[in-house]
Structures are given as C-alpha cells and as structure tokens.
C-alpha cells in the first residue's frame, strides 16, 4: 500500500472517530469541542509515555521519563485519562445550555495550547517527535498497513457501539432532549446524567483519536489545536447529517479526499471550500445529506426486496 493511500485511509478513519465524538453530545443539542483538547492531551501523554523526544535545544531541560510503553498501553492511558477528564467536567456542565458547553470547549483548547506552548518538557511550540512505530521490528509499509487496520477496527467497534446506543432507549431519550429539553425533563429523563454520559464518551473518543493520530504522524505539536479543526469536524458532521451516525461515514472520506486531489494552488483555500460547503448545506439541507427519512426510504427499498419472497409465500398458503 502506498504511503499516500494509507495516510489518507488512516486520517479518514481518525476523522470519522473525531466527527462521531462531536456527534454524540450533539444528539442532545450540545456542541462539545473539548474532544479536540482531549485529542491533544492524550497525544502528548502518549508521546511522553512511549518515549518520544523533544527538539535538540531543549533536550537538556526536558525531563526524560525513559518510559517505553507499548502502543496498546498508551492507547488505554489516553482513552482513560481523556474520559476521566470529560467525566469530571461533565459533572458541572452535563445539563448546561449548548453555548456554555461550547465556551468550555474553547477555553479548554486555549488552556491546553498555552500549557503545551510554555512547557519545556513538552517541547514548547515545536512539540514532540520520534514517536516509536506501532510495532517495532516491522517495516515501514507493514507498519502503515497495521495502522490502517487498527484505525478501521476502532471505527467498526465505535460505530457498532454508537449504533447500539442510537437504537436503545437512551438514544431515543437523547433525541427527545434535542427536540424539547423541558418536555424531556417532564417525561422523567435525567438530562444531566445523559449529558454526562455523552460528554464522557465524546472525550474518551477524542482521546482514542488523539493517540491514533500521534502514531500516524509520529509527532505532536500545539499547532494542532486550531479553530480550523473545529470548523473541519463541524463541516463533516453537518454536511453528512447530524441526525444519524452514518453522516460522518459519508462526509469524511469525501470532504477529506477532495482537497487532496485539488491542484496544489487551490490547496491553501481548502478551509474556504469547507466553509462555503458548510454554509451552503445549512441553507439548502439544514439536516445534512443523510437524514432519518432518507434512511427510512433506503431501508424500505432494501426491505421490500427481501420481503417479497416471504410475502408471496404467504399468499400461496
């Protein structure tokens, strides 16, 4: 597999996870951008614990933990720490209005960035690099293939989990909070618990994506925390459709792919391209491309074909 293709596939998988991380709290109407901070936090943790280094001039001041944790351990660490952080914050803003959640996310992003930029042990603005390969001993291309497999394994796993959630009682409850919070409260739904659950899951998912991202780039720097990423993930969510989990699966590969095949001179404008698409889709199809009615129609199409033999059999008897 070529480096370009495997890179595209890994990043696509990671961004699907990221977009799902935004999708989950938005099920009940909260735009939780803390996952971007979580992504970076877990990436830095992963870098520290896997034995990455900081740039040459700062190496004397840096604390060398001399740890060489394997991939799986750093992954668990990243997910657990991020999830825990998300849970602790959700205790305060589990049932907060959308905009309070938004500003908490932004504040966290700024704080993480400020800390990373000013801490020598984390390499300041240069960040950390020389993250070990996922499996030492394998060749570069084998490692890339392995990483693609790992990323898509997690997409499947998380996708299945979100599917089960959406179909469950909790998923329906989340939708009802989205539509009318007061009504949902009067129906006996614990909005705070719901928010807490979804925000924790979102943060843990951010942590997962962060560690995967770290092993893909094999480096991390504070410059990842930019407002563009918020715009990027939001575009992917809203274009694909925020009412179902399938929206990101459609939107991420396309939206991430198009700028890659654009001519070099247009590449710098890719964020403009995202912004225009975002505004356009909200004006033309406010719920995104994949909506629940569309899914139902697709479902009916597939279902009819399957039902026909059974139906005709019934007629015969």
């Amino acid at each position: 597999m070529s480096a370009t293709l495997s890179n595209y596939l890994t990043i696509t998988a990671i961004f699907i996870l990221c977009t799902w991380a935004i999708y989950l709290p938005y099920r009940m109407g909260q735009l939780h951008f803390m996952m971007i901070a979580n992504m970076v936090i877990s990436a830095y943790l992963g870098a520290l614990f896997s034995g990455a280094v900081v740039s040459g001039s700062q190496v004397q001041e840096a604390i060398n933990l001399n740890l060489h944790w394997p991939f799986i351990l750093t992954l668990i660490l990243g997910v657990v720490v991020s999830g825990l952080l998300g849970y602790l914050i959700s205790l305060a803003i589990g049932d907060a209005p959308c905009f309070a959640v938004v500003i908490v996310g932004f504040a966290f992003m700024y704080l993480t960035k400020a800390i990373a930029e000013n801490t020598t042990a984390l390499g300041r603005t240069f960040g950390m690099f020389r993250v070990p390969r996922i499996v030492e001993g394998l060749s570069n291309s084998q490692n890339r293939l392995f990483l693609v497999c790992v990323c898509f394994f997690f997409v499947l796993l998380v996708g299945f989990w979100i599917y089960r959630f959406d179909k469950s009682k909790l998923g329906r409850a989340a939708s009802s909070v989205f539509v009318d919070r007061d009504l949902a409260v009067s129906l006996g739904i614990n909005v705070k618990k719901m928010g807490s659950l979804l925000q924790t899951a979102s943060s843990a998912l951010g942590g997962l994506a962060g560690v995967l991202y770290l092993y893909t780039l094999r480096a991390i720097s504070p410059s990842f925390i930019t407002f563009h990423n918020v715009g990027l993930f939001m575009t992917m969510l809203f274009v694909g459709g925020y009412t179902t989990q399938w929206g990101p699966l459609l939107a991420v590969p396309i939206l991430w792919g198009i700028p890659l095949i654009m001519p070099e001179s247009l590449q710098v404008w890719k964020n403009v391209f995202y912004a225009v698409i975002l505004i356009g889709i909200l004006m033309l199809k406010p719920e995104g491309v994949i909506t629940r009615p569309l899914l139902r129609r697709l479902n009916n199409l597939v279902f009819k074909r399957r039902l026909k033999p059974a139906g005709s059999g019934k007629n015969l008897s």
């Binding site: 109407g29 563009h228 715009g231 575009t235 403009v272 975002l278 909200l282 406010p286």
Partner: peptide, 23 residues
Amino acid sequence: KRGSVDINATMVISMGMGMLITE
C-alpha cells in the same frame, strides 16, 4: 426553513462565515 428559530443552527452558520472571512 426550520419553521421556528433554531439558535444552534445560527451559531454554526456564523462559525462558517467566520471561517470564510478568517481564511
């Protein structure tokens, strides 16, 4: 389009405009 005012959607649109101008 949405019948009633959905304030979340206005914020996302506004973010899109911000992205456009900043870029």
